[in-house]
Design a protein around this nucleic acid. Sequence first.
DNA 1: AGTTTTAGCAAACGATCGTTCGTCTTGTAA
DNA 2: TTACAAGACGAACGATCGTTTGCTAAAACT
Lengths: 211, 211
Amino acid sequence: MAGRRSDSDARETRLAILRRAADIGSVEGLRGITIGRLATDLGMSKAGVVGQFGSKEALQLATIELASEMFREAVWAPVEDESPGLPRLLAVCRSWVAYLADPPFSGGCFLALTSMEYGAQTGQVHDDLAAVLARWRRTLLRDIRRAISDGDLPADSDPEQVVFVLESLANGTKGAQQLHGDPDVQHRCLVAMHATLGVAPPERIAQSARS
Amino acid sequence: MAGRRSDSDARETRLAILRRAADIGSVEGLRGITIGRLATDLGMSKAGVVGQFGSKEALQLATIELASEMFREAVWAPVEDESPGLPRLLAVCRSWVAYLADPPFSGGCFLALTSMEYGAQTGQVHDDLAAVLARWRRTLLRDIRRAISDGDLPADSDPEQVVFVLESLANGTKGAQQLHGDPDVQHRCLVAMHATLGVAPPERIAQSARS
DNA sequence: AGTTTTAGCAAACGATCGTTCGTCTTGTAA
DNA sequence: TTACAAGACGAACGATCGTTTGCTAAAACT
């Protein structure tokens, strides 16, 4: 039935697989990603799905890579050109919260879920997730250190402490959203992030229509 | 081969199953809990494992209940008799961090992992997890409100905001521990919790032997 | 003492898991 | 024009999934 498509077609197929995998993973975790399910959803054969990657673990790693790029694209790319230091940090907080409130995955942040899922396990999946998060931490740390040397944060601030709090708040936002159903969670998260950075709380964000 | 044991024996078997299930779940999530695996680990037959519960979902719900009790036992029970309000809140922070640093599960906090895992899914498992976390939130909220009326927290504090930050920090501790391998994470978490409660940072905790 | 419950076992069920195999088809290179 | 490389297919593999069905045997109740 199907013969060889052009190379770009093959890359499109690969992307379609990974996009679907990332979406499933954001809801049910990496364990919920199944070759047969991807095949069914995409109207392909199981062999066709796994053929591009060789094994399920390779597919999982590629999915992590795509999700990581989607995160960077949504959170970092829009603010990359802001001035380094506190201004860019505040911009990151805004885009980060916006990403959490309206994520490009149907289950919420892919990385938040999968890093919890594989935090206590060993193997390449854990290591790749750790590497992705470590890279993000370093990005944040750079601007935190810059903010300190600029005098925008107290000179005795501990950069590691600041990044720990910011990451925790972002993580906690997913929980408060999905478990407790808190409708104000994005504002709450932004308020807490600003407090961490010693900045006056933000204006109330225009919420989805309510009363 | 095996006949009817006494009722207390049966309850012990049930407990052994749930303990093992909670431990597996803390590492690999609720999806990683498998009837066959429990049977192998406990030297039982699959029917013997599932017989006590009727179905896998019932077993999952019972596992959540046990893990919830273990959390209460480790975090709340030791501080329950402290004086309500800020003093008990600070005591909770200490026991909470201690629980996170040395959890009764081999994979870290069971609830932190599974609530992420099922946050975006629907069904009884999600609902039960949400109920457990909501109960914990209410417990914290009670003391936060008391601390406000006692004048130990600013009168214009938002209790929901405080509990959101505390929960986020606890959640983030697991991530920083398992993904980034931060050895100072428990101190970091306690510092941030104290800051949230407007209290001077705690003394440095005696760490496990290092240098 | 006799009857009823019930914990647990062995075995099998169909479904699905990840993987492998051979084949067909087609774009690309020789 | 011929030969090759590669995407995708259908089909099957053994393993494991959750569940069901008798069955055994001992505790508990009458």
